[in-house]
Simulated assay, not measured.
Amino acid sequence: MLFKPTNWKGWGYFTADDYGMHFPSSPSPSDKPEFLYVSWGKVENIEGEKLYGRVYGVSIELNISQREVEQHFSQVYKANKLLDFKQMRGEYFLIAYPNNAFQKLPVVVNRLLEIKAASI
């Protein structure tokens, strides 16, 4: 299943399947991205929550290395640092997308949890 911003035609934030999640390395649809595969065993909490103050969105905790963070989430890492959004929760790297990126946040969260639960 592909999850992408509602106003972008050719770019997805990530995909999810029976094996895990796949995150592209580039936010530009014109670049050919490499994908970071994260198995469901390395995906912890997926939830809707407040991000950046009053903005709601989906957050995903990933057990990945700092090298993987720098290679695949460098733009997110810089933006979150500027917004003073905490990148780590315990040993998990936190990736988050604001609600305006998805049409129905609860549907996205529930669908990801269903895919993860069916795969474990």
Rank of each mutant, 00 (worst) to 15 (best):
Y77C: 12
A101Y: 10
L112M: 01
G53I: 10
V55L: 15
A96C: 11
F73E: 03
Q87G: 10
V69K: 00
I95C: 05
F93G: 00
Y97T: 15
L51W: 04
F23Y: 01
S59G: 11
V108N: 08
P24N: 07
V43W: 03
Y56D: 06
A118Q: 04
E49W: 13
V76S: 03
A101C: 04
R54T: 15
E47W: 04
K86D: 02
G20K: 06
G41C: 03
S119K: 11
V69W: 00
E70C: 01
S119R: 08
L82K: 10
E34L: 15
T6Y: 14
Y56I: 10
Y56H: 12
M1N: 11
D18C: 15
R89K: 09
R67H: 03
A101S: 15
D84H: 09
L36I: 01
P98C: 06
I95V: 12
Q75P: 07
G41T: 06
K4A: 09
E114V: 09
T6C: 13
K81E: 04
V43N: 05
V109R: 06
W11P: 03
V38Q: 01
Q71K: 04
L2W: 13
I60E: 02
N80H: 15
A118G: 12
L113G: 03
E47I: 02
K32P: 03
M21T: 03
L62F: 01
I120K: 08
L2N: 10
W8E: 07
Y37D: 14
F102S: 09
Y92G: 02
S30R: 12
H22Q: 12
K78N: 15
F23C: 00
G53R: 13
L94S: 09
V69S: 01
D18E: 07
G10N: 06
V58K: 06
K78L: 07
I64W: 02
R111F: 15
L105M: 15
N45M: 10
K50E: 05
K116C: 05
T15I: 11
S25L: 00
A96S: 14
K9Y: 11
P24R: 03
E47D: 06
F102Y: 12
Y52I: 15
A118N: 06
R67N: 05
E91R: 13
L82G: 13
D31Q: 04
G90D: 05
Q75E: 14
Y92D: 07
V109P: 06
G53E: 13
I115L: 15
S65K: 00
Q75M: 15
A101R: 05
I46P: 00
P5C: 05
R67C: 01
E47T: 06
W11L: 04
V69T: 02
K78V: 09
D84K: 12
A96R: 07
S65W: 00
Q87P: 09
M21S: 03
F93H: 01
S59T: 05
V76H: 09
I46K: 02
G10R: 11
Q75A: 12
E61K: 14
D17N: 14
M88V: 02
P29K: 07
L112G: 02
S26L: 00
I46C: 00
G53Q: 14
K50S: 12
N7Q: 06
G10W: 13
L105I: 14
K50Q: 14
G53H: 13
K50N: 11
R67F: 01
Y56N: 05
I60G: 10
P33T: 06
Q71I: 12
I95P: 04
K42V: 09
F102K: 05
E34Q: 13
W11N: 04
N99E: 08
